[in-house]
Simulated scan of single mutants.
Amino acid sequence: MTTVRVASRKSELAMTQTKSMIAAMQKIRPDFLFEIVPVVTRGDEIVHVPLSEVGGKGLFVSEIEQLLLKGHADLAVHSMKDVPAELAEGLTIGCVPVREDPRDALLTRHGEQLRDLPMGGVVGTSSLRRAAQIHHLRPDLVIQPLRGNIDTRVKRLQQGDFDAIVLASAGLSRMGWSHLISERIDPHDILPAIGQGALAIECVDEEGEVRAMLRELTHEPTLQCVQAERTLLKLLGGSCQVPIAGHAEQVDACIRLTGLVATTDGKTVCKATSVGGASAELGQAVARQLQEQGASDILAAYV
């Protein structure tokens, strides 16, 4: 029997996502034996410093990529929003399954929505993207850093450390915690992270039975939307070290992509939308519009 080793971070959310993908793969290849290879990444270990100060989202991926390259794992399940625009050489994203809700979720202690939070309310997030857009909408709110696994963040809200916290709706849904959400924030108000809500199954860039299996699990509309978003991210040269957002969605036979670059204080926001049929060209079009609005100058300040 062929054994497929699947690398995953040890967090409860990561394990939940990985087990769901293994269940889907097992249906396609019941003759395969799937084995989880748990990994603790630097991003998991460094929880008291914002990601933007210690290397960005690659901290959740780089150790896992080394396992794949060294042959110690065959696949890795990532949250797409944690995957850098550039993969390690020799690796590829072999599968993008159907996307969960891409929106950000507001969690509050008393069920308030973003517009209802009291003046001077404290909102927990370590995302520069979220902080910039919250500042733009509600400059009176106070943003304080919040790192850690999803369960740790929820506990800190419940303990009263914050009036509200912002998490990804997808992670809460996958954990079965949708009931905790006070508001699923409209992307017109807060644009999601690149790839938010989608999963990425990474593997070595070689043909074989594993790649063939992954192709069967790929959801083409999600793949096309994610490719448009990641093209935008790559052209802007961004990571979580800069306040960049992007969201693509199917509109009839086309894709509509909206991108955003902002200063962390939310005072300057560049935002652009384009509709088209080709992912790469769409990403290029939105990147060009943002650069024409001055996004390059904003991004240069974070290099």
Rank of each mutant, 00 (worst) to 15 (best):
M1E: 14
T2L: 15
T3L: 08
K10G: 10
T18G: 02
S20E: 13
S20C: 10
A24L: 11
D31H: 12
D31W: 07
F32D: 09
R42T: 15
D44Y: 02
E45Y: 07
P50K: 11
L51P: 01
S52L: 06
S52E: 12
E53G: 02
L59V: 06
V61T: 10
E65S: 06
E65A: 04
Q66E: 12
Q66I: 10
Q66R: 10
L67I: 10
L69A: 10
K70Y: 10
L75A: 05
L91F: 01
T92F: 00
I93K: 00
G94D: 04
C95E: 11
V96H: 05
R103K: 13
R103N: 11
A105I: 14
L106S: 06
L107W: 08
R109G: 14
H110K: 09
E112I: 07
Q113H: 12
Q113K: 15
M119Y: 15
G121E: 07
V123R: 02
G124H: 04
L128V: 07
A131I: 14
A131R: 11
A131P: 06
H136P: 05
N149I: 14
I150S: 08
R153M: 15
K155Y: 08
R156S: 14
Q158C: 12
Q158P: 05
F162K: 03
A164S: 08
A164P: 05
I165R: 02
L167D: 13
L167Q: 11
A168T: 13
M175C: 08
E183P: 01
R184T: 13
D189A: 11
D189P: 01
A193N: 14
I194A: 01
G195M: 03
G197T: 06
G197W: 03
A198K: 00
A200I: 06
V204P: 00
V204T: 10
D205H: 04
D205E: 12
E207S: 11
L217M: 09
E220N: 12
P221C: 07
T222G: 02
V226R: 02
R230E: 05
L236W: 00
Q241L: 07
A253P: 04
C254R: 15
R256V: 12
L257Q: 05
G259E: 05
K267W: 08
T268E: 12
A272P: 04
T273N: 06
G277W: 09
S279M: 09
A287E: 09
R288M: 14
E292L: 15
Q293D: 07
Q293I: 14
Q293P: 11
I298C: 03
A300N: 13
